[in-house]
């Protein structure tokens, strides 16, 4: 019933199901980590917007919780690195 949504992650085009969150599309594409934290890589932890582990940059806007933001066709996702 749901269609497809395509997003660009670090210059790679991946597709998910329309209605999925960015985290859902990333996980559906086989990724489980996409942010570099102080001690290693992080992906989804709480899944409901509480922990901020899954932050990504979306269309140039930093600090977006991937588990809360619905993926929109053409979204450009960039990894975030915490120094």
């Amino acid at each position: 019933m749901s269609g497809t949504v395509r997003i660009v992650v670090d210059d790679e085009l991946i597709s998910g199901r329309d209605g999925q969150t960015i985290a859902g599309v990333l996980i559906g594409s086989g990724r489980i980590a996409w942010r570099t934290a102080q001690h290693g890589e992080r992906g989804v932890f709480c899944g409901i917007g509480v922990c901020h582990d899954c932050l990504v940059t979306v269309n140039g806007v930093e600090g977006v919780r991937a588990c809360q933001r619905r993926a929109v066709e053409g979204d450009r996702i960039e990894r975030e690195v915490r120094s």
């Binding site: 999925q20 985290a23 001690h39 290693g40 890589e41 709480c46 899944g47 409901i48």
Partner: peptide
């Protein structure tokens, strides 16, 4: 903190909302 560890609620939310 290893990728692959989530809360139970995250597993539930990802399954319900994202089907993954």
């Amino acid at each position: 903190t290893l990728p692959g560890v989530t809360t139970a609620g995250a597993a539930q939310a990802l399954a319900k909302r994202d089907g993954v």
